[in-house]
């Protein structure tokens, strides 16, 4: 139970943050969505051994999190949740790819470089996405996606998914509590019980979906979720988007750490 209840609190924390009113929160959501997408594209565009050139990109999530009052600890915990999957993706790289790659004066096995690169890209892009939701709000992100031309059914699904994830988690929490109260000495915990548990949850979800659909129809739903937000892409939004994208381009084209290194080397006696 506590784990599921914890997940609800966990999940709600980003929502709570998105309700605060820093200037960054008030910025047109489209500006933030487009900039974050450009950020992800820039980070993804590097070669597979890139590690050092990626580092300057950390500026974007760090700057946004500070301006939007998003605690780094909160981001860190969420990153840790997803980390095992990423480690699994890259885990074999060091074993399979032993080609030496030069790293300054050293030579490192290519697999380790690509593994580090995967981890770094993961941290950068996922933290940027988390910060985006925390400083914008999930439904504002959806509204922006809709206005940017993402197909309506997809936006509708995202919105409804977000809304009912809480209901689903609460439902699962109640069922888990009911089960644990009648579980003794490990009996009633194994695979068969879990199967029945998930089956019941699925059926309940199904029933719920049907009732929601009825209630949508009762209020004239015709397949389009009308969802209006007065959006204004003002000067601040233009400045924000173009400024960051220019910076991403610069980071992409100029190897900043190397440049910095050579400056330092030149300055050294």
């Amino acid at each position: 139970m506590s784990r599921i209840a914890g997940a609800i609190v966990h999940f709600g924390a980003l929502d709570t943050l998105s309700a605060s009113g820093t200037p960054l929160h008030r910025l047109d959501p489209r500006a933030k969505v487009v900039t974050t997408l450009a950020f992800a594209a820039a980070v993804a565009s590097f070669g597979k051994y890139a590690v050092l050139p990626l580092l300057p990109f950390a500026l974007f999530p760090v700057a946004l999190a500070s301006a939007g009052g998003v605690p780094f600890g909160l981001l860190g915990r969420r990153l840790l949740l997803a980390l095992p999957f990423v480690v699994l993706v890259g885990a074999l790289n060091p074993v399979l790819d032993r080609m030496p790659v030069s790293l300054g004066p050293f030579a490192v096995a290519g697999g380790w470089m690509s593994f580090t690169s995967i981890l770094l890209r993961f941290v950068l892009t996922v933290s940027a996405a988390l910060v985006l939701v925390a400083v914008t709000g999930f439904h504002e992100v959806c509204a922006a996606l809709g206005r940017l031309g993402v197909p309506r059914p997809l936006v509708t699904q995202l919105l409804v998914l977000h809304r009912y994830l809480f209901v689903l988690l609460e439902e699962a929490g109640r069922m888990e509590r009911a089960r644990s109260l009648r579980t003794f000495g490990g009996r009633g915990r194994g695979l068969p019980a879990s199967g029945a548990f998930l089956g019941t949850l699925l059926l309940r979800t199904w029933g719920r979906a049907e009732r929601i659909h009825f209630s949508m129809l009762a209020r004239g739903f015709d397949g389009v979720l009308r969802f209006e937000r007065p959006l204004r892409f003002g000067a601040a939004a233009v400045l924000f988007t173009s400024g960051w994208i220019a910076l991403f381009l610069a980071f992409r084209l100029v190897d900043v750490p190397r440049l910095l290194g050579s400056f330092l080397a030149a300055a050294a006696p």
Partner: peptide, 9 residues
């Protein structure tokens, strides 16, 4: 169940 009816953000 009002949860069935309140589906918007």
């Amino acid at each position: 169940d009002p949860d069935d009816q309140l589906f918007m953000p």
